[in-house]
Design a protein around this nucleic acid. Structure first.
Lengths: 136, 136
DNA sequence: CGGTATCCCATGCGATACTG
DNA sequence: CAGTATCGCATGGGATACCG
């Protein structure tokens, strides 16, 4: 609770010049660890997919966000976008070699999460119960 | 602080109740893939560290966010918090076995990023140049 | 089919001040 | 030393409508 009546002076220096924040590796990590980049790459791992197939494989994603992520992945050389000039047009996304390497790392992380979520939930329950007891 | 704790879907009801959004694995992934959880776990991988040591090892993190992440990690059974009742108190954070497993996955992803950032940057430059040409 | 455009909200994170 | 409290922005991402 606001002890001193000091008003927060809203201008919080964006920290923008701290060199480690602009570090490209940092930025790239933030992207590949984002909410959807990992899952998308994993979907493309076994086989190339078209836009709507990809969307359907990722329940909950919006087309906007899927498109954003794909654009970024293509730009970063992790995914290839191939257009078949048919009618209607077909656009296929596939992993590059670089993207393939990344996929194996993502896979490791994501399957770890899949395998150990129950243990984490159990630990969490134990922890919360102890907190409960201490509170009482 | 109850960060991302429970369901609590105050968010803009993503098509209402799509169960996959509340899926514990999804939530856990969002956490370990967050901006700092990965780096923190990696710092603890070689050896346990105290709060300020950890903060200093992670340039740019605020104490608030470090504390938040550590609390969550402890709650999830990935990190152990040990208090030495000396004067002044010493608090040491170390990985559990579960946290150790996670660390190796994170390590894979983070070192991949470290090793391949130059290639990504090169790809990005190539891509941006092509866009430039098409625009003209 | 394969996207963009627009609008808006929830959440994460940073900065600063204070406490046991 | 090891945190908590408070405030506020920036950003990612969701919903919806529209375009080539």
């Amino acid at each position: 609770m606001r002890v001193g009546s000091e008003v927060d002076n809203g201008a919080q220096a964006p920290t923008s010049d701290k060199s480690h924040n602009d570090c490209p590796g940092r930025v790239l990590y933030r992207h590949v660890a984002g909410r959807w980049a990992g899952p998308i790459v994993l979907e493309l791992w076994p086989e190339p997919l078209r836009f709507h197939r990809l969307r359907d494989a990722l329940p909950g994603i919006s087309e906007k966000v899927l498109a954003q992520n794909l654009r970024e992945l293509v730009r970063d050389g992790l995914v290839t976008r191939t257009v078949e000039p048919t009618r209607p047009p077909q656009v296929t996304y596939s992993l590059t070699q670089l993207g393939n390497d990344l996929a194996s790392q993502i896979h490791g992380l994501l399957t770890w999460v899949g395998n150990h979520t129950p243990e984490v939930l159990a630990a969490r329950r134990r922890h919360d119960e102890q907190q409960q007891q201490q509170a009482s």
